[in-house]
Write a protein that binds this DNA or RNA. Structure first.
Lengths: 146, 146
DNA sequence: CAATTTGTAACAAAGGTAGTTACAATGCTA
DNA sequence: TAGCATTGTAACTACCTTTGTTACAAATTG
């Protein structure tokens, strides 16, 4: 099991928007797809989710796509939520009908729940403390070295 | 996307082994399946993984199944690894062929990798600090209250 | 008004999960 | 030692999610 690459693709797309290559060329789903190496429809679907979350503004036709906020104010947790790769609070699936006639069956869900929630929250907090700007700064830094 | 319930089922099964109901009845895959509410083969597959990881000893026929270690020394991270719900270091899937002709495409993977690894490790550390004994103690405590 | 692009539906292929049946191999136990 | 319950495993199914694809109406710029 893996968390869908929709998340990494979304971060990729947002990085493209945050680091415009300035050649005045319109950044269409087609061009983004070229950078990510996927199909333009995949990009449009993700842009639709980012739009719904209020992270980008997308105008049909040759209207262009823009970030609605500064990269420093956008956290990876917001992106993670936006693309709905994991339903909130549901990273771990727990078998749903344990036998209530059994001591363990009766209490396993609540006994596990606290730990699983904490594990999940720990992961999310790392994402919450990383911004889009940190990612683009890192990309730019690596570009200078190489 | 969710992490397979193999993990929660494995913890359930280990709890059954740690909290024997003492009626002298053999704890077969059939009985465990009754407590989890699934098929005995599902239980046997998971027991096979726990055995491979050295957490339990399973003897065919009426040999019985036992923990090989004290519940206090078994962490949920070991169980998580044993049932292989997530390949090591691969919780997040990252699109694998970004375009190297593009600045972002060239560096997105390494720019994301550090954060994603830290997020994953944060989750695993919570599991590493929770033992089977804590789970069974919690189950027993809840049983007294209810 | 023409050309381009977005938004979205519909579909397919691939892979993982969970459940099921079936049966050979194993090893207690009487 | 023979019988019997149980394990280990293969094979199959149904279902769901992910990713990629084609197709086309709706929108908007210029």
């Amino acid at each position: 099991m893996q968390i869908s690459s929709r998340f990494s693709v979304a971060v990729h797309v947002l990085s493209l928007l945050a680091l415009p290559e300035q050649d005045g060329v319109l950044l269409t789903s087609e061009r983004m797809a070229g950078s990510v190496n996927t199909n333009p429809v995949v990009i449009r679907r993700i842009l639709g989710q980012l739009k719904k979350a209020g992270l980008v503004e997308v105008r049909p036709a040759s209207g262009g796509t823009f970030l609605t906020r500064q990269p420093a104010t956008i956290t990876l947790l917001e992106v993670y939520r936006a693309v709905e790769v994991v339903e909130e609070g549901q990273l771990f699936s727990v078998h749903d009908k344990p036998n209530p006639a059994c001591l363990v069956g009766r209490h396993i869900q609540s006994a596990l729940d606290d730990t699983l929630q904490r594990a999940q929250t720990a992961l999310e907090q790392v994402l919450a403390h990383t911004t889009l700007q940190q990612v683009t700064t890192d990309i730019a830094a690596k570009a200078l070295i190489a």
